[in-house]
Every structure is written in structure tokens, then in C-alpha cells.
Amino acid sequence: MPRFMGFVRMEEGVGTPPQELFDAMDAYIGEQAAKGVFLDGGGLYGTEDAVNFVVREGEVSRVDGPYAEAKEVVGGWAIMEYPSLEEAVADQREFAELHAKYWPEVTVISTLRQISTGPEAPGA
């Protein structure tokens, strides 16, 4: 079965999500885990302790956070497995709708990407 990575991007420093969103997410993730769809995931701390390694012109340099230029950061991630792309997309929309319902004042981008297992095309 194809596996997917979902992640949530948002502006950094928008505050803590409301408890209602945490509660809704706990219920949603519990249902997805019970169905065998949700494999692993979690939230991420801010970029204040982040470390980037930048490769430029064959040289590697380390850049520590926080990053003043970062306007949007990944705030959470999930690894999921679905029988089809259509089911993955439908559930990712449902996930995004939880954010719209319980934290409408924040702009959130909920992204779904298929995980590559080799040179084959997505959806294979």
C-alpha cells in the first residue's frame, strides 16, 4: 500500500492551538490509528533550536535557528498508509477541516505527499 507524509505549515509564533483542536486531533488520530492508516506522527517545536546544514558549491555549513527570515514553518507531521491516493486526499482534507473549525484565525497549509520507495512514478 502506498505510504504518505502529511505535514502542516503555518506562520511561526502564532501561539498555542486551542484545547478544542488538541481534543479533536486526539480523537481523529485515534480513529485513523485504529483503522491502520496513521502509522506515526507528531508536533514540532519552533525553530529556536533548529539546525540546518546548507550545502552550497560543494561546501557544508551549519546554520542554527531561530531564523528571522522564516515566515512559515512545519509545525507537525504524520506518516500514513492508504489503499489509494483518493482516500489519502480525502482524509487530508478532513484533517485540514479540523483546523478550519477549531483554529479559524490561523492560516494553516496542510500538505500531503506520497513517499517514494524507488524510481517508480507516484500512485504505483
Results as ranks from 00 to 15, higher is better:
2 P>A: 08
4 F>D: 02
5 M>R: 11
5 M>N: 03
5 M>Q: 09
6 G>Q: 02
7 F>H: 09
8 V>G: 04
8 V>K: 05
9 R>N: 10
9 R>S: 11
10 M>K: 12
12 E>M: 10
12 E>Q: 12
13 G>T: 11
15 G>Y: 03
15 G>Q: 06
16 T>G: 09
17 P>I: 07
19 Q>V: 15
21 L>C: 13
24 A>F: 00
27 A>C: 08
29 I>W: 04
30 G>P: 07
30 G>D: 02
31 E>F: 05
31 E>W: 09
32 Q>L: 14
32 Q>F: 00
34 A>H: 09
36 G>I: 08
38 F>E: 03
40 D>P: 02
40 D>S: 12
40 D>A: 15
41 G>Q: 01
44 L>F: 13
44 L>C: 11
46 G>K: 06
47 T>D: 13
47 T>C: 11
48 E>K: 14
52 N>V: 13
52 N>H: 14
53 F>I: 14
55 V>F: 10
56 R>H: 08
57 E>K: 15
58 G>H: 04
58 G>F: 00
60 V>P: 02
62 R>E: 13
66 P>S: 06
66 P>W: 04
68 A>Y: 05
69 E>P: 00
70 A>T: 13
77 W>E: 01
78 A>M: 10
79 I>L: 15
80 M>R: 00
80 M>C: 12
83 P>G: 10
85 L>R: 14
89 V>R: 09
95 F>K: 04
97 E>I: 03
98 L>G: 00
98 L>V: 09
98 L>T: 04
100 A>H: 04
100 A>F: 02
101 K>Q: 05
102 Y>K: 02
104 P>A: 00
106 V>F: 01
108 V>H: 00
109 I>W: 10
110 S>V: 14
113 R>W: 07
114 Q>S: 02
114 Q>H: 09
115 I>S: 02
116 S>M: 06
118 G>I: 04
120 E>G: 06
121 A>I: 10
121 A>E: 15
123 G>S: 06
123 G>E: 08
